[in-house]
């Protein structure tokens, strides 16, 4: 039987929703146990949150001052030690998990399955390659621990609130390196919904034209209660910060409603949105590839259409 260790992602004392998505993927294996591991200097609040996630058997915490920031070099030896006795180690395929999981896999001397989209069996998974232009079925050797990152857009967050999993503090004997140090995190402050988990996302692209013009996107997003994203072209042009980038090399998201405004729809952008429920495209070029994947398309000048949308919304 499988026993799965899920590495919790958290920031600022809160569990990231990606954790519950990774638990969802773990549940698909129908394992004997799913334990969530919280590494932090102060794990209690996040552990309490994780204990409520449906399907979680136990929450394990490792409280060490070195774990105040998620440095892969510091966390990986602790995860690798904890992994003994588990058949699988899962982490979300976010920048946190992508940074950490391969370091754990290498310490365990095993391969990693990146970006799991579906579980076909305890050791068989589907994952995208070539920016999502092909989907491969991968079999991992049952004799080894499976380390995998979970493509969060492919999995719903496991329900929360109905579970009361026990929380156990671990003390792991591992010598931790001091060669890597956290300096700072520059984070845009925003009252808007989180891009990765929002039900609605409004994104702007090159067609928005400038950083100043991007205000029209923010204003419209606020009107409909959406998170704000951007295409790589808009980020490269300096219209908005990197954490807003949606696409293959940015965030891969699956909102119920995705509105692409002034975005032509480069393949790497489409990779980031193809799991969205409904895609709306607004672009002045009727031939733009974004219309090939849009459920609703509207050709025209975004600076004229957005105010009209606001009027129609009332």
């Amino acid at each position: 039987m499988s026993k799965i260790l899920v590495i919790a992602e958290h920031l600022g004392g809160k569990l990231n929703p990606s954790t519950a998505r990774a638990v969802s993927a773990a549940s698909a294996i129908k394992p004997e146990a799913i334990d969530v591991l919280v590494l932090s200097d102060a794990p209690d609040a996040m552990a309490a949150e994780a204990a409520q996630i449906e399907g979680v058997s136990r929450v394990l915490t490792i409280a060490r001052s070195e774990n105040a920031h998620a440095l892969a070099a510091v966390l990986a030896p602790q995860v690798a030690k904890t992994a003994a006795g588990y058949s699988h180690v899962f982490a979300p395929s976010t920048t946190f998990g992508k940074d950490l999981a391969p370091r754990v896999a290498a310490l365990l001397g095993v391969a990693q399955v990146s970006d799991v989209m579906s579980v076909e069996g305890s050791h068989t998974f589907k994952r995208p390659i070539y920016a999502g232009n092909a989907i491969i079925t991968v079999e991992a050797a049952p004799a080894h621990t499976v380390v995998a990152t979970i493509r969060t857009a492919s999995w719903p967050a496991a329900a929360s609130g109905g579970n009361h999993a026990p929380v156990e503090a671990l003390s792991v004997e591992a010598s931790l390196p001091t060669h890597t140090r956290f300096v700072e995190l520059k984070q845009g402050s925003s009252d808007r919904p989180d891009l990765q988990s929002a039900a609605k996302v409004v994104s702007g692209g090159r067609g928005v034209g400038s950083k100043e013009n991007f205000d029209i996107i923010y204003k419209f997003a606020d009107k409909v209660g959406a998170a704000v994203g951007a295409s790589r072209a808009a980020v490269d042009a300096g219209f908005c910060p990197n954490e807003m980038q949606v696409g293959q090399t940015g965030k891969i998201i699956a909102p119920e409603l995705y509105m692409a405004i002034g975005i032509s729809g480069a393949i790497q952008h489409l990779t980031g949105i193809k799991d969205a429920g409904t895609i709306v495209a607004i672009n002045k070029d009727g031939e733009a590839p974004i219309f090939e994947v849009a459920d609703f398309g509207l050709v025209g000048d975004l600076f004229k259409i957005i105010p009209e949308l606001e009027v129609a919304l009332g």
């Binding site: 946190f96 060669h179 140090r181 956290f182 984070q187 910060p241 990197n242 954490e243 965030k251």
Partner: peptide
């Protein structure tokens, strides 16, 4: 470039 923004580390 991390999901939350820009993180600076020393190595």
């Amino acid at each position: 470039e991390v999901d939350a923004g820009l993180e600076v580390i020393e190595a």
